[in-house]
């Protein structure tokens, strides 16, 4: 094979066993796995966006309302502000984590949590409002795609908020153990990713929706 020399090797010159005591890095392994998970989540959104692209022609809305008749960009922009400031707050959490500042981490998490709740409240309010107007996902294929895509994103947000709650408890209880730090890093990835997805939702569903 690669080393097909049949010359005898000096046993003392080769390393056969690993005695270097290197322990594999738990946090980096966990973060790598979480990146992989995010990749699969990205695929989920990619497929949902593809479905939305297919179902966002005007004929996909049958005779029912099209987004142009109900999307309010100003309102959605408020949601954007809430989510982005939440991500900013989470950024402060990370800065505090780097400095080993427990109080900073906790207040940053609270900030991110509250702003995230604001985002979700705005979203739920929007859905209730639409349903109140009789605009429901079962009216047409287009509306189905509209609702499922936006609410899948909202579901991710809900999940992230739950996670933040758990982290609040864990940070105050365990401090910065390897597990807790790993989870905070993964959550950062998750939260930033949801904000990125929101940019796409904002542009391709709401802004473009205004033209349909």
């Amino acid at each position: 094979m690669s080393s097909s020399t049949s010359k005898a090797l000096d046993p003392s010159s080769v390393e056969l066993w690993d005695h270097s005591h290197h322990h594999h890095d738990v946090i980096s392994t966990r973060t790598f796995g979480f990146w992989l998970y995010m990749l699969s989540d990205a695929m989920i959104f990619a497929v949902l966006f593809a479905a939305w692209e297919v179902l966002s022609y005007s004929h996909s809305f049958a005779a029912g309302p099209t987004p142009a008749s109900f999307v309010e960009p100003g309102y959605v922009f408020l949601q954007t502000l809430a989510l982005f400031t939440s991500v900013l707050a989470y950024g402060f959490t990370m800065v505090a984590l780097k400095n080993g500042n427990k109080a900073g981490v906790i207040s940053g998490l609270w900030g991110a949590l509250i702003l995230g709740v604001a985002f979700l409240a705005l979203d739920i309010n929007d859905v209730v409002h639409l349903v109140g107007m009789g605009i429901t996902p079962d009216l047409s294929g287009g509306l189905s795609a509209f609702f499922i895509l936006t609410q899948t994103h909202a579901l991710h947000i809900l999940f992230g908020l739950l996670w933040m709650l758990v982290m609040l408890v864990q940070v105050s209880r365990f401090g910065f153990s390897a597990d807790v730090v790993g989870r905070l890093l993964s959550l950062r990835l998750f939260w930033h990713f949801q904000a990125v997805v929101w940019v796409f939702v904002f542009v391709f569903v709401y802004l473009r929706g205004m033209l349909i």
Binding site: P137, D138, L139, G141, S144
Partner: peptide
């Protein structure tokens, strides 16, 4: 699942659904 449980129209034959999707 959404089609069957919530009555959406992703893949239905009418109301804007798309079978090829």
């Amino acid at each position: 699942g959404f089609d069957r449980y919530l009555g959406t129209h992703f893949f239905t034959a009418g109301l804007g659904g798309n079978l090829m999707l």
